[in-house]
């Protein structure tokens, strides 16, 4: 029995026992023991996962080492590969006209013309908006603030009446 098998069996047994006892202790209402058993389950789970990942990394490392140490490909393989490469269809080139610099004289004027046209449209829209908009918001605000305006004759008058004290500033307006 190698060490890896023993490790796997030990991990599986720990996982099974601690997981089962977590539920047993929960059933018995022994919460401290259930918590401890669950902690052991999590620790065993981490250990088993670490062992598995370590094994997988070791296998990958061995495979890479074997590939690097392998002898070069035989001549037949190289010939076959060369034949596949030569018979492959040419790669597709989207926007093929852009790959040739001698045809850029078409692209640039189109771009510039589109820019000029868009600038003209934006100028017209801006002029139209300036000519048609009216200060509606300011007018509404001014009408709402009418109620806060100061009385025309002020708060204090020269004549005093007996009820002025009770009326307050508004009462003395007349």
């Amino acid at each position: 029995m190698n060490a890896r098998l023993i490790r796997t069996l030990l991990g599986a047994a720990t996982l099974a026992a601690s997981g089962a006892y977590t539920f047993v202790y929960l059933y018995r209402w022994e919460w401290n023991r259930a918590l401890m058993s669950a902690a052991i389950f999590i620790a065993a789970e981490v250990a088993v996962m670490g062992s598995l990942l370590s094994h997988r990394l070791k296998v990958l490392n061995q495979r890479l080492d074997a590939r690097e140490a392998a002898p070069p490909a035989p001549a037949e393989h190289t010939t076959r590969l060369e034949r596949i490469r030569t018979s492959a269809p040419p790669a597709r080139a989207p926007f093929a006209w852009l790959t040739r610099p001698d045809q850029m004289n078409v692209f640039v004027p189109v771009l510039m013309g589109a820019g000029v046209l868009l600038s003209g449209v934006a100028w017209v829209v801006e002029r139209l908006a300036r000519a048609t908009v009216s200060p509606v918001a300011e007018r509404g605000l001014a009408s709402q603030l009418d109620g806060l305006a100061l009385p025309a004759q002020g708060f204090a008058t020269a004549e005093s009446a007996p009820l002025d004290l009770l009326r307050g500033p508004v009462g003395r307006r007349t």
Partner: peptide, 12 residues
């Protein structure tokens, strides 16, 4: 009974 026995026999 389950609660009481669980408490008495747990690591309380």
């Amino acid at each position: 009974r389950k609660r009481l026995l669980g408490c008495l026999q747990d690591s309380t």
